[in-house]
Design a protein around this nucleic acid. Structure first.
Lengths: 220, 220
DNA sequence: AAGGTGCGCTTACGCTGTAAGCTTACAGTG
DNA sequence: CACTGTAAGCTTACAGCGTAAGCGCACCTT
C-alpha cells in the first residue's frame, strides 16, 4: 500500500510532510473531517504509521497551528512601531483567514509552540520599544491580538464562496426577524453594504485601535 | 432504568432539564467529556431518549450556549451609555468565565439563538444611542465583543484551582526559555504579578477601550 | 373500555483515536 | 558478502462516540 518508486523504495514519511498534507486537507475539506485515517490515505499510508511522527491527534493539531504560524511575515525591522505592528497584524490576520480552521485552533489550543512564541515575543517587543508603560502595553497587546483572532474567527464563520455571498446574505436578511432585533439587523446590513467588505473592516478597526493606542502612549 | 417516584411515574425529561444538566456537567467535568451517554446517565435515562428533546448534539451545544447567555444581566435602563455598556460587558464576561467551556463555544458556534441576539441587539442599541457614527459603532461593537470573549478565552486556558495557580505558574516560568523570548517572559511575569489578577486585567482593558471610544465619538 | 400517542428503551451501525504486536527495508559491521 | 539492529511501515483489535430504526409501556382522551 505504501507508495514506492519504480525501484521499490518508498517515499519516506516525515513530520513535515504529514503537517503539510494535514493543513492542505483541512483547508480543502474543513478540519472537522480531518481524520487520522483520511490523512494517512492521502499520504498513501496506513493510519498508524502517522504515529511514528506524531504523538497524538492533539499533537498533530498543535503542529498544524505552528505550521501556519510560520507563514506570518516579519515586518521590516527599520519601520516605526506603528507600521511594524500594523504589518505584523495584517499578515497574521491574512494567514488565519487563508486557513479558515486555524483561527479557532489558535484561540483554543493552549500548547503554544516556538513559532507562535516568536510571533508573540516580537509583537510585545515592538510595543515595548514604542515606549508603552507596562499596563498600557498589556492592554495594547491583548486588544490587538483579540482583534486579529476575533475578526478571523468571524470571517471563518462565513465559508461560502465569494460569488454566492451577496445572494446568500440577502436571503438571510429577508428571513431575519428585523422587527425583534432592529439594531442587530442594521449591523448585519452595515456589514453587507460596507465599502470594501470584510478585509477593510479589519484594517479599519485595526487603525482605530492603533490610533487610540498612540494617543494613550505615555500616561494611563 | 428510568427514574420513577414511589408510585411508579417517571420524572419527565424536558429540553430545559437536559440543558441544565448538560451545563452543570460541562462546568464540572469539561465539555470534551460531555457525551450523550454520560449526560443521559446523569439524568437516569438512556442516551437515545435525549433525542426526543434535542435534534443532535450540535443542537444541544447551541442550546447550552443559549442557556448560559440568559444569565447575562440587563443593566439599568436609566444608566448612561458608558455605564450600561460597561455593566453588560462585565456581566457577559463573568458568565463566560463562570462556565469555562462557554467562551470557546460562543466564539465558535455560528448558530446564534434569540437570547444571544437580544444581547447583541441591546449592546448595539446602547452604542447607537450614545451617538456613534455607523463606522465607529461597528468598530466599537467588535472591539468590545472581542475583548470580552477573547479575555474569557484566555482565562479558560488556565482551569487550575485558585490555590495551585501561583505555585504552578511559578514552576512554569522557571522552565520557560526566557532567554529566547524575553518580552513574552516579561508579559507572563506581568500577568502573574499584576495587582488584582485576571479579573481586574479585564476591567482595566475594558475601561481603556471605553475611554478611547468616548474620545472617538462623533468624528472618525 | 378502547385506542392513540408521546416518550423512553433496545439494538445496531459506521466511524473515531489509538494500543499492541508484526514485518519489512535498509545501514552498519564482521 | 552475510548478519543483525533498528527505524518505520502494516495489521489487528478495542472501546467509545453520535445517532438511525423500531419497539413497547404508561398515560390521556373519548
Amino acid at each position: 500500500m505504501a507508495r514506492r518508486s519504480a525501484r521499490g523504495q518508498r517515499t519516506p514519511l516525515s513530520r513535515d510532510r504529514i503537517l503539510r498534507e494535514a493543513v492542505a486537507l483541512a483547508d480543502a475539506e474543513g478540519i472537522e473531517s480531518l481524520t487520522m485515517r483520511g490523512l494517512a490515505g492521502q499520504l498513501q499510508v496506513e493510519a498508524m504509521s502517522l504515529y511514528n511522527h506524531v504523538d497524538t491527534k492533539d499533537d498533530l493539531l498543535d503542529g498544524m497551528v505552528e505550521y501556519i504560524a510560520s507563514e506570518i511575515e516579519e515586518p521590516d525591522a527599520a519601520a516605526d512601531w506603528k507600521t511594524a505592528v500594523r504589518r505584523r497584524a495584517i499578515s497574521a490576520h491574512d494567514v488565519l483567514v487563508r486557513h479558515p480552521w486555524s483561527s479557532i485552533q489558535w484561540a483554543t489550543r493552549m500548547n503554544v509552540g516556538p513559532t507562535r512564541m516568536r510571533y508573540m515575543d516580537a509583537m510585545l517587543r515592538e510595543l515595548r520599544e514604542a515606549g508603552f508603560s507596562p499596563g498600557v502595553l498589556d492592554v495594547a497587546f491583548h486588544t490587538l491580538q483579540n482583534h486579529i483572532v476575533g475578526h478571523a474567527l468571524q470571517a471563518a464563520a462565513f465559508p461560502y464562496e465569494e460569488e454566492d455571498l451577496p445572494e446568500m446574505s440577502a436571503r438571510y436578511l429577508e428571513s431575519f426577524p428585523a422587527d425583534d432585533y432592529p439594531d442587530l439587523a442594521a449591523h448585519i446590513r452595515y456589514h453587507r453594504e460596507a465599502p470594501g467588505g470584510e478585509v477593510s473592516s479589519f484594517e479599519f478597526g485595526l487603525d482605530a485601535i492603533l490610533d487610540a493606542l498612540e494617543r494613550a502612549r505615555g500616561p494611563v
